[in-house]
Write a protein that binds this DNA or RNA. Structure first.
Ligand SMILES: [Mn+2]
Ligand SMILES: [Mn+2]
Ligand SMILES: [Zn+2]
Ligand SMILES: [Zn+2]
Lengths: 142, 142
DNA sequence: GCGCAATTGCGAATTATTCGCAATTGCGGA
DNA sequence: TCCGCAATTGCGAATAATTCGCAATTGCGC
């Protein structure tokens, strides 16, 4: 957990606990798109007493603080990733679940203006392209 | 349920049952964005013996047939709407849950091309703008 | 170092969704 | 029109995802 993360948590009146440090480390080093149970299993290897409740509670703390972001990738549970600097979006394969990131091809400002037209102040833009990846299409054709 | 819906179900080898007709009618007449339990409660008024399992099973049938679409509006459960002719997207208020529809401001073709760049064949484009609606911002300022 | 509110672990509770199975029923063919 | 039977339904139990209650622990401001 870097100084910026600590600052964010302190500003939100949250404590820096070993569990929170560990869970954020796991998310950061994973490459992204983990679900709660994957985070739990990875973190538990380093801290066997860790409980799943704590993982869920920490996810909520980090989510509310804006450190991580919740993803809906078409399954019955959520996935999480670091809220990165540059906004990126996701290509999701309906068949195998593969997730590919790509950068926002249209103006962020365009979206904000669009929201404003309806009186909304936009906090997040989620663009998901759902389809079939090359491998799965090849598989299909067999 | 119109002739087109019937055709779709028949083509998929599915039967036309009163439950399926009713559930689709409820979704169609609701204005959209219902969750499974709301569909259940509304439909149960007309067919008191209806079971929640049947609602979930019908949702899956309609979803797989492409008649309805599953939405992830930031809650712990899904919402559903008719898969309309023209693609529209959603503005979602984080505070009160309000959902406003808007039309796709960028080229559908652009997204397909973008997917192709990664070997994906795009089946659906989901664009969600999450933020704070005018009322909730006014409330906030008090 | 102290004091105490915030946090944790653990098990139970809730919520969302699926499953197993016996009873019912849509629908293609006689 | 009637039959046969696989598809579908209702119901209750089972799973999966997430949250809660509470007593024990611990971070952190003083
Ligand atoms: Mn990502
Ligand atoms: Mn809609
Ligand atoms: Zn794939
Ligand atoms: Zn609102």
């Amino acid at each position: 957990m870097n100084e910026s993360d600590r600052k964010i948590l302190r500003r939100a009146g949250k404590r820096i606990t070993p569990q929170r440090v560990l869970i954020l480390k796991v998310i950061r080093e994973s490459g992204g798109h983990l679900d709660a149970d994957e985070i739990y299993r990875l973190a538990k290897q380093k801290a066997p007493r860790l409980s799943l409740s704590t993982v869920y509670r920490t996810i909520n703390v980090l989510k509310e603080a804006g450190v991580i972001e919740e993803l809906h990738l078409g399954e019955e549970h959520h996935h999480y990733e670091l809220r990165g600097e540059k906004g990126h979006h996701h290509l999701i394969c309906q068949d195998c679940g593969k997730v590919v990131e790509f950068e926002c091809p249209f103006s962020e400002q365009l979206m904000r203006d669009l929201g404003e037209k309806y009186g909304f102040e936009i906090a997040a833009i989620h663009l998901d392209l759902v389809g079939h990846c090359a491998e799965c299409r090849r598989e299909e054709r067999k």
